[in-house]
Structures are given as C-alpha cells and as structure tokens.
Design a binder for these strands. Sequence first.
DNA 1: GGAAAATGTGGAACTAATTCCATATATCAA
DNA 2: TTGATATATGGAATTAGTTCCACATTTTCC
Lengths: 347, 347
Amino acid sequence: MEQQKVTIKDVAELAGVSKSTVSRYLNNGYISAEKQAKVRKAIEKTGFQSNFFAKRLKTRESKLIGIVLPRMDSVTVGKLLSGITRVLEPEGYQSILLVSQLSQKKELESMQKLQQQGVDAILVDSVGLTDEHIRRAKEWGLPILYTGQKNAAVHCLKIDDAAAGHRMGVYLRQMGHKHAVFAGVTESDEAVGIERKEGFMAGFCEGRTDAKVDFVETGFDFLSAYNQAEEICKIAPSVVVGATDNISLGILRYFHERGVKVPEEISVAGFGGYDVGAVVYPALTTVAFDYELMGMKAASYLLNILRGEDAKLTNLDMPLLFVERESVQNLMKKTLPINSTSLPAMM
Amino acid sequence: MEQQKVTIKDVAELAGVSKSTVSRYLNNGYISAEKQAKVRKAIEKTGFQSNFFAKRLKTRESKLIGIVLPRMDSVTVGKLLSGITRVLEPEGYQSILLVSQLSQKKELESMQKLQQQGVDAILVDSVGLTDEHIRRAKEWGLPILYTGQKNAAVHCLKIDDAAAGHRMGVYLRQMGHKHAVFAGVTESDEAVGIERKEGFMAGFCEGRTDAKVDFVETGFDFLSAYNQAEEICKIAPSVVVGATDNISLGILRYFHERGVKVPEEISVAGFGGYDVGAVVYPALTTVAFDYELMGMKAASYLLNILRGEDAKLTNLDMPLLFVERESVQNLMKKTLPINSTSLPAMM
DNA sequence: GGAAAATGTGGAACTAATTCCATATATCAA
DNA sequence: TTGATATATGGAATTAGTTCCACATTTTCC
C-alpha cells in the first residue's frame, strides 16, 4: 500500500505544531503569526499537497461539476463548453465530462455516474426531457440544470427560437423585402419547425399587409435543401430564409451552380452557427445563437442554485447575435453590399 | 454536518453481517452465497451507494483522467475529445477537462491542478513543451502523455506532417500537375512550416525532373492568404496548395471574386479539417487529419502506460485521411470532375 | 484420525484530512 | 485582584470506506 509522500502529520511534526493547527493554517486562520510562519516553512520544505479525497470525504464538497453533452464533435457544443468553463474555472470548479451520444438512455446513465462521483451539481445539454429527468431534479439532493430543452418543472435554459425568427423577419422587412420563402423543417420539431418559423412570420409581416411568405419543407441537411432549391426558384421570392444554416448553405450552393447571383438576383439568410457561413461566397447573413454565452449563463445559473440564491440574480434572456454579412441585398438602397475590402471575419 | 444517507455500516447492520463482509461483497468476493444474498437484499432495500471519496482515499485510484486542451471552440479539439472519450468511457474512466487558452503558463497550472485532484493520468494537447513539462513527466508519479508536440524524452503523439505533405504531393503528381505554388507559413513553425512543406516537395517531385514548386509565404489566417492570392496569380501555376485549409479557403475566395474558375483554370488543395472545406464551392480537396482517431490512440496509449504495458501494444502511426473533392483537376483525363450529382458529403 | 489447507467472518487498524471540545494563556474591564 | 472574554492550541472523534490479521469452521488428503 503505497502511501502519500507528505501528509499534514509530517508538516505538523516538522513545524512542531499539531495537525489541527496545520489544518487551520490551510483553511480558516485562527493561528498566531509565529506558528503561521513555521507551518509555511514546513510546507515549503516538504512540498506538501493536500489530499483531495481525504479533504472531500470530510467536507462533502467536490468542487466538481458534472456535464453531460449529446456529442463532442460539433462547434455548437464546443462553444457551449467553452462558455461553461469560462465561468466555472475562476470559481475553482472543474468539469467532469460525459457524452450521451444523442441517446436518452445514456444521458440518464451518465447523470447517475456523475451523482455517484460526488459532483456538486450537474448540467445536462439534454436531447429530450423525460419524467425520469424531472423526478431526479426533484429527488436528488443536488442542483441539476437542463439546457436545450424546456420544462417548467425543472431548472432549464433554452435559446429563444421565436425571438430569433422574429429578429430575422424584422431585418428582412427593413431591408425592403416583401416576398420571402421560408425553407423550414417539419413541425414535429417544435423549436425549429414551429417557434422559429412563426417568429419569422410575425417579424416579417408586422405592420404591413403587402408581405408574403411561402413555405418549402426540407430536411435538416445540406443535401435535402439542395434538392428543394429548384422548387424555391420557381416561386421566385426576393429572399430565401433557411431554418438552419445547413439549409441555407445547400440553397446557396444550388444557386452558385446555376449561375444565380446572390444577393443581386436573390437574397439568402439563415439561422445557426457562425463558422461555415463566413467562408462561403457570398458570406451568409444569419442569426447566430451565442452558445458560448449560453454556456456562461448556464454555469452562472448553476452556481447561483449551488449558493442557494436560487437563480434570481441571473439574467436568463439569451441574446441573439445578428450576423450581417453579404448574402442579403438591401432593396431600400439599391446598391451592392459587396466589395473586396469587406471580407467576412473568420472565427 | 450533514452526513450520508446510507453507509456501508447501515447495510451491514441490516444484513446482520460486518462492514468487512459488505466491503468484500462489493469488491473481491470471498463471501458465502447465503450472506451474499442477505447483503444484496440490504443494499436493494436501502439504496446504498458507495461513497466515492472514502473509497478513493484508501484505494488511491480515482478512475479519472485529466485532460488539458488549448481551447474548446474548435472542431479539431472536439474531435480529439470525442475520440478520447470513446476509448476511456468503456474502461470506466472519466475525464476532467481544463482549458489552457493557448497559454503555456495556464497549461502547466492546469496540470498541477489535475495532479492535486488525484487523477490517475494526464493527457495534454500541448501548445509547446518546455523543460518543466519534461521534468514533470519524469518526476510526478503519474503517466503524462503529450499530443500535438514531439519530444523524445516524454510520451507523445503527433500527426505526421511530412507524410501528409508527401501524400498531397504524390496525389497532385498523379493528377498530372507539374507546376505548383505552395502557400505556406513561416518556418518558425516546424511542423507546418517545414515538415509539411518538405514532405510535399518530396512527394511532388519524386522521380521526375520537370516538376516545379514555388513558395509564397502567408499567415495562418484566411485574410492573410486572401491578400497573397494576387501574387500567386502572377506565378500562374496549375495548382495552389495551401498549408492549411484556412489558407486554401482564402485563396479560393479570391479566385471566386475575380471569376477565376476552380478547378478548370487553376486547382486548389489544402490540409487540415474536413468540415468547412465541404460546403464551399467547389468543395476543397484536402488531406484531413483524423483527430478523432488521434484521440482514440492517445487514450489507448495512456491506458497502456497506466497498466504498465508501456505502450508497446499500441500502433502509433497516425493515418491520414485523403479527402478528394472537387477543387483539383485531373490533367491526365482532361475531363471536368464536377456535376450536380456528386455533391460533397456534409459532416 | 489428525494434520494441513481452504474458506468465511468479524474486529481493529488504517487512509488523510476536518472539526469539536477542552484547555491554556493573554487581554481587559470592574 | 478577580472574573470575563478573546485568542490560540492540541487531543480525540469523525468521515466512509478498505484491508490486515486472528480465529473459527469446513474440507481435503495422507
């Protein structure tokens, strides 16, 4: 049984004090200046490092936050994690990471593992809330926060899809567009299929009667959008809005291949990330979701619960980042927004 | 001092056995079938969960692997992490994640923190190895593996840049190209600036005397490459190879804006990721580094060290993924590789 | 039949910290 | 000069497990 090189006991003996005194030096103070100096020297000399497990056994605080993510290989998740870490690390918390691989079952298993590990709180970027999720949030003694999904019974944080749609609608209205095609996904996806679309309609049509929005249904992927692009061409709107950036990218590529000039002949806009859209030509105007900020908010929220302040202090509005680039024409000005000096920013 | 709901003592009392017996039930066996049943029932009834910290205090094994990453918001890192997790999780290990924000100082600090946390091993996707890194790998009692950097004195894993360059060189030679421009970065970056470039030259010129390679130096970013594109045009090669995908993308965009047709008039190729390159038009042919595989190899390597098998079993070759898309013309066939049915795969 | 080996079991020690409690001074007001 | 309070300090208990050791059975083998 290989044991720890230097323990608090060794330090105490070398400094000529008791273990309690060393512990007090390490924690709350209540120690004379004289002994303080002795202990400091002894710690320096021995290179003492406090044993994490012994400490946690007694204090029942791990300073560890469990995080369950649906996947790791997406920019979205990376940004989210980046935001979480940015808040947690300065507070002395560290993250334990588990991946659910988009499976609800693995998600619940991961939560269980984390709870057993003794994490102080759990943050789940959930793929779908079940009754079990809600039961745990109530019965387990530790704070649990869900992101990506919404349920009034638990702590959660989600992007405001309706607001995002609305924002885009207002922008296109202000740019003088009157006839749009919304290339969206099935309504079975409540957030993207319904909230985002209806938000867009509201923003686009607000305060006028001469606006028109047509719908074309596509899948979530690039290719499916590409295949629907011909149909959109037939409708011949002044602008096409893809419900996700992938959709917009598929449409953009179709236009490229057919020699349809964007935005001169037709404008294109999207929703989502902000990496891919920046390098295509023309760069895609989009409502970007600031996942990094979302991560920061989620982490702050969690810390608040942890401190018993019950999340009142945190502003939970999830601001959207409107990224105006080159793919939408301003019909009010009748000038081309492109020139070689206004290159899109790369991430 | 709020204490644990159910401890091993409670289980022992309920089952009418000693603590030792319950512990044996939980671990190595050596318990009669009769008591085994009793203990099982007691555990079920009480919902007992073993205390992580108490267990680890005695066993000195955390089943936790510390990971230090330079940043979180890049696809590259996401893939790496994805690969690591894929190997570690089935083995019962979990990851603690820390971010160095591309700073060597924070990287060392993070390693220190992880060591204090009592992780079983540390994996560092390093931004640069210092003497301190090497000292720690030797002096700390726990296995440390560095990726992204190379040093014979420590365990490390790195992509073979020379091989990647060579691969691309051979491909372009086989496609019938004779005059290339290599748009590269400064030689102060050994991996990208020297190894990759020289590998390319070797592969491109191999076995012939009529090949010519010109160099144009750019920065790492999109914009800097874009600004050098005019100079490349003056040289008028049949193919431009960017040392990274960002460089290729910048060049591609310049060509687009000037109406230079790719690959009909000039071919373009790159090195690196495989996400962005797929959606531009034309899709970029590239040597992709399989970071996910690298993560898996790194994790396996680490597990081997942990088990004392000292990394002999693992095959450390880092295979490269050649992604042939649309941006390079086959001069041997004199046909255009593009048509609307051969769309690039989206990730 | 009896020694030797295998199989179970409980008690106590141990892991490395924190923290409660008792006690010893030192400071200060009455 | 007391008594009361504040400041320091050490000893012992506590945290929840694992593991060593002693001892009691039972089984095996000569």
